[in-house]
Design a protein around this nucleic acid. Structure first.
Lengths: 157, 157
DNA sequence: CACAACTTAGTTGTGCACAACTAGATTACA
DNA sequence: TGTAATCTAGTTGTGCACAACTAAGTTGTG
C-alpha cells in the first residue's frame, strides 16, 4: 500500500513536502494560541511582543524587531494596538529622537500572571517529552538558519 | 554560561518556546519561497493551490479547502486572483449549483514545468538528508494532529 | 409537497507579514 | 561646517488567515 517512488526531494506532491507540514503545524499552533489568548485579549504576535517585554522591559522598536524578526511595518501598528489596549507606553527617547522606547504599563506587567497559565496548556497540547521538545527546538533553529542563509545567497537563475 | 533553569515547559522565555521556533522557521521558509516563486508570479499559498491542482485537476473549492486546511474566506479571493492571472477557470457545477469546480487552463498546466525547478532549491536550502527530512515531516504531522486534537477538546477554564 | 436543516461559496472586517517608500534625526567625513 | 549617508519609525498597499455572516442551492422529514 505504499505509493510509488516519485523522486525524493524533487517531488511536487503536496504531502511529500516538509514545507507544507511546517506551514500546517505553525497554523495549528497559532490557532491553539488564539483560543488560549482569547481571555487575555491578545493575538499570538502581540503575545510574543509581551513575552519579549516581560523578559526585558524598556526596549526600542528596533530591539523588539530583531528579537522577533519583525520590521516596523508589522510592529508599528501592532504596538499602537497594544498601547490602545493600555498594556504599553510608547515614548520617543530624548537622547535620540529617532528611536521609540516601549515600556510596560502596570496593567501590562500584571497581565503576566494570566499568561503564566498558557505554557502548560501548550506543553500538554504538543504531547512531547523534554528530550523531543529540545531536539525539535534545535531542529527548528537549525532549519531557520539554513534556509535564511540559502535565501540570502540566492540569486535568481 | 548557561542560563538559570527557569522551569522547563512552563517558561515564558521567548527562546525556550518551540512555538516561536516553529513560527520563525515557517516564516523563513515562506520567505525563501517568495524569492523562488517570484519568476512564476505566485505567492506561497497560491503555489500550494497549484500543487494540489497539478496533483489532481478539477477539484471543488471545498476539496481544495480540505486538502490545504483553508476555508472559503481565504480561498475565494485567492482563486479569483489565480483566475485573473489566467491559470485556472472557475465554473459552477451544473449538477449541484452550490459547488464550483476549479480547472487548470493550458497556461496553468504549463506552469508546472517551471515549478519543477523549485523543490531542488528548497531541498538544498533545508540542508537535511532524506532520513532527517522524513523524520521531521512525520514530527510535523504528529505535532499538527496533537495540537489540533487538544484545541478541539479545549474548553476555556 | 412544504419547509426546516444543512451545505457550498462568497463577503466583510480585523490583524498580521512584508515590500516599498517617507519623514525626520543623527553621524561621518570631505 | 555643510552635506551626504545612514538610521529609526512610521505609512501605504497587497495578500493571506480567520471569524462571523450572507446568499443560494440541496436534502431530509413530517
Amino acid at each position: 500500500m505504499t505509493s510509488p517512488d516519485t523522486g525524493e526531494t524533487g517531488s511536487l506532491l503536496l504531502d511529500d513536502q516538509l514545507c507544507f507540514g511546517l506551514y500546517s503545524a505553525s497554523r495549528a499552533v497559532t490557532s491553539l494560541y488564539r483560543a488560549l489568548l482569547e481571555p487575555l485579549d491578545l493575538t499570538y504576535p502581540q503575545y510574543l511582543v509581551m513575552l519579549a517585554l516581560w523578559q526585558q522591559d524598556e526596549q526600542q522598536v528596533k530591539e523588539l524587531g530583531s528579537a522577533l524578526n519583525l520590521d516596523s511595518g508589522t510592529l508599528s501598528p501592532l504596538l499602537k494596538r497594544l498601547e490602545k489596549a493600555g498594556l504599553i507606553k510608547r515614548e520617543r527617547q530624548s537622547d535620540d529622537e529617532r528611536s521609540v522606547r516601549i515600556r510596560l504599563t502596570e496593567e501590562g506587567t500584571a497581565l503576566r500572571a494570566k499568561a503564566e497559565r498558557i505554557p502548560p496548556h501548550v506543553g500538554a497540547a504538543m504531547n512531547l517529552n523534554n528530550t523531543e521538545l529540545g531536539r525539535m527546538r534545535a531542529a527548528m533553529d537549525q532549519l531557520t538558519a539554513s534556509v535564511n542563509a540559502y535565501r540570502e545567497s540566492y540569486r535568481p537563475s
